[in-house]
């Protein structure tokens, strides 16, 4: 049966398969790996020693980790059918605008809600671990989002399709072929709806997922604000951040 004028059930299944495969192949850590490391926590001593590091050192560490994770998101995007058919200008705009949001969704795989910790550099870390960054509000907002996304209990398929749909947002400024992006996003949302339906889920779950978008956007804006402030205080350190990080988050 046809789900819409130009998207059959077969299309939907093909899209789902492609997006899920791309997601699984480009996740930095498998769920099994993360599960195995669940009880690998930073000790209080280790946490204290990270808290005593300079803001510059801690920012550098986080910038390196975010940069590594972004490379996996680029690979995810490249494998989504239709993404590489867009002009390169639009591919770059979509990645620059959406990669942090994709990372925030992926983050809930690496979050342990039983002890409010997040996988960072080989072990699970509490919000206090990141104190040296001097951005308690940003860190707390990220942990809050992880907690609320975890509560949704997204399957890998739902996470994959949700990430792809966000990445392919047609409303990003300066897109030259936003209609083409919109068509891709519509198909991915249909696939997500279908997946939720098949999993016994409802429209309510999709609404709950979509309701996280403003929270995600505000985290992205807060990150940029903090980065700009950091750049004013420590221009040389900011200049030594990985070039890809500077490219993605530069003005």
């Amino acid at each position: 049966g046809a789900l819409s004028d130009d998207c059959s059930l077969l299309d939907i299944e093909r899209i789902t398969q492609n997006v899920v495969k791309s997601h699984i192949e480009t996740c930095q850590y498998s769920t099994e790996e993360l599960k195995r490391l669940t009880w690998n926590l930073y000790t209080p001593e280790e946490t204290r020693s990270f808290q005593l590091k300079s803001a510059e050192w801690m920012w550098q560490q986080c910038a390196v980790h975010i940069t590594n994770a972004i490379q996996y998101v680029v690979e995810f995007a490249k494998r989504i059918s239709g993404f590489m058919d867009l002009c390169q200008n639009d591919q770059i705009i979509l990645l620059k605008a959406g990669c942090l949001e994709v990372l925030l969704i992926r983050m809930c795989r690496a979050y342990n809600s039983t002890n409010n910790t997040l996988f960072f550099n080989g072990k699970f870390a509490s919000p206090q671990f990141f104190k040296a960054l001097g951005c308690d509000d940003l860190v707390n907002a990220i942990f809050e989002l992880a907690k609320s996304l975890c509560r949704l209990q997204l399957s890998e398929e739902e996470m994959a399709l949700f990430s792809a749909a966000i990445l392919l947002s047609p409303d990003r400024p300066w897109l030259t072929e936003s209609q083409q992006v919109q068509k891709l996003q519509e198909k991915i949302y249909l696939a997500l709806q279908h997946s939720l339906h098949m999993g016994g889920g409802s429209q309510e779950k999709l609404d709950k997922m979509a309701s996280k978008l403003p929270q995600m956007k505000s985290i992205c804006n807060l990150h940029i604000d903090k980065l700009e402030f950091f750049r004013l205080l420590h221009p040389e350190t900011a200049f030594s951040f990985p070039p890809l990080y500077r490219e993605v988050f530069g003005s």
Binding site: M84, Q88, L95, P243, L244, E247, V248
Partner: peptide
């Protein structure tokens, strides 16, 4: 374009999956 040379390169590199 010049400002995004790493993204350009990453997008142009062939994925391992493509062989």
């Amino acid at each position: 374009t010049e400002r995004h040379k790493i993204l350009h390169r990453l997008l142009q590199d062939s994925s391992p999956a493509d062989g």
